[in-house]
């Protein structure tokens, strides 16, 4: 329990220090675009009413969840297929490296033509960025599964499905989870980017609209909220990581 308290204190320590630094450094600010932190926090409760949470924040998070889940499903499925099939890997590798290098914001007008301007488009934008780290890390993870383990599975005739579920996926899971963590960070950014085009609601949309209508303290409050959202999602991911890879973490810690 002591270590948990200590860890929490350490985790919150730097943010608290930065917050205090910001507070005092900006206290007397008259700059339009950098108001005092006290003004921003005062705006916070006024801006982020329950209606805004329901109409802006929740839809954004929901789209992020949908896009991220779709990316994970597609990325892992395709990654396993490509990683396990050698000719397919060699065929697709250059194309994949090309595709992942294209920044999603550049693709947004194109995506808008295919996917319209509603939730589908925003989710597609998120997928267009999130799928790559998951796909490529899955391919790498699958290709690096211990050959002796694959031989064991083959020798015991475990079969394709059981080999996939009991050997390949768990063996590749550390790399896959790494890809998923990268994708989460990208997803939060794209959630905002997708709402800068043809949006009518959303957290990113609200922040941009505040900026456009010169409601600067509200804009900053939105940015703070976005940061907290990102941090909360990262914390949630750590829980997921510990659950899925608990054996991996213990092994690294305890290995004889």
């Amino acid at each position: 329990m002591v270590t948990l308290a200590r860890k929490t204190l350490l985790a919150l320590g730097l943010p608290a220090a930065l917050f205090a630094l910001w507070w005092f450094a900006s206290a007397g600010s008259t700059s339009f675009y950098f108001p005092p932190l006290s003004a921003i926090t005062a705006e916070f409760a006024e801006t982020w009413t329950p209606e805004r949470w329901r109409d802006d924040v929740l839809p954004s998070v929901a789209r992020l969840a949908a896009g991220y889940t779709a990316s994970a499903a597609a990325g892992i499925a395709l990654g396993v297929l490509i990683g396990r099939t050698r000719w397919l890997f060699h065929l697709t590798e250059p194309v994949l490296e090309f595709a992942r290098a294209v920044p999603p914001p550049v693709l947004v007008p194109v995506i808008m033509l295919f996917a319209g301007i509603g939730d589908g488009m925003k989710t597609a934008v998120i997928v267009s960025g999130c799928v790559w780290p998951i796909l490529l890390n899955t391919v790498a993870g699958v290709r690096s599964v211990e050959p002796v383990q694959l031989d064991t599975a083959a020798a015991f005739r475990l079969g394709r499905n059981r080999t996939l579920l009991a050997v390949v996926l768990p063996g590749a899971s550390p790399r896959i989870v790494t890809g998923m963590r990268q994708a989460l960070a990208i997803g939060v950014i794209l959630m905002v980017v997708s709402e800068m085009f043809a949006a009518q609601s959303g957290l990113g949309f609200a922040i941009v609209q505040f900026q456009r209508s010169y409601a600067i303290p509200a804009m900053w409050s939105g940015i703070l909220l976005l940061g907290c959202l990102g941090a909360a999602l990262a914390a949630l991911f750590t829980v997921f990581d510990r659950a899925v890879l608990h054996w991996h973490h213990r092994q690294r810690a305890e290995e004889v």
């Binding site: 007008p109 808008m112 033509l113 319209g116 301007i117 085009f197 043809a198 949006a199 009518q200």
Partner: peptide, 20 residues
């Protein structure tokens, strides 16, 4: 009216596509 924000250069394509 459902106003939606789209950059001018993208508007002809979006109008043709029926998204607005």
């Amino acid at each position: 009216i459902g106003f939606t924000e789209i950059a001018f250069p993208d508007m002809p394509a979006q109008l043709s596509a029926g998204n607005v």
